[in-house]
């Protein structure tokens, strides 16, 4: 993936990665596009659910404890150079992204194995579909 630095002088603060990795592609294409009811024969639902799950922010006690920890680690940086907090945040972001990709990939695997064949017949597409995403 080509990632331009967003710290180049004279503008260039806008980060413009080329969306080429699987995670980017999944984020861009899944759960999008015209939905043609009768023809959707993959267990796309499995993928959709996992994708959406990965986006849910769980406001649990654990989450709060992580926020607190992050806030308290701020002190380390104020006192001594900043390395510890940077590392901590880097780790958090890394593990977060890793989970997301894994979830989506296993979703794809699940779709592959659970081939629901109850849709072998072809019916005309319908214009109105409950699965069409409403747009703002």
């Amino acid at each position: 993936m080509t990632v331009q630095s967003h710290r180049r002088g004279g503008g260039g603060y806008l980060d413009r990665p080329a969306p080429s990795g699987l995670a980017d592609v999944i984020e861009i294409i899944l759960d999008k596009g015209i939905v043609i009811d009768a023809y959707v024969r993959v267990s796309l639902v499995g993928i959709e659910l996992l994708t959406i799950d990965a986006r849910i922010v769980i406001a649990s006690v654990d989450t709060y404890l992580r926020f607190a920890e992050a806030t308290n680690r701020l002190d380390l940086m104020e006192q001594g150079g900043g390395k510890p907090l940077d590392e901590f945040i880097g780790n958090m972001q890394e593990s977060g992204a890793g989970r997301k990709v894994k979830g989506a990939v296993s979703g794809a695997k699940k779709a592959l194995s659970s081939s629901d064949d109850d849709d072998g017949e072809s019916r005309p597409a319908k214009k109105s579909s409950s699965r069409r995403r409403s747009t703002a």
Binding site: K32, G33, I34, I36, A38, V40, R41, V42, S122, A125
Partner: peptide, 20 residues
């Protein structure tokens, strides 16, 4: 270009024209 949702499959060529 209007993308169609990933995973959409039509069974035969006639179906593309006549049903889709």
């Amino acid at each position: 270009v209007v993308p169609v949702s990933f995973g959409s499959v039509v069974l035969d060529q006639e179906g593309i024209r006549d049903e889709l």
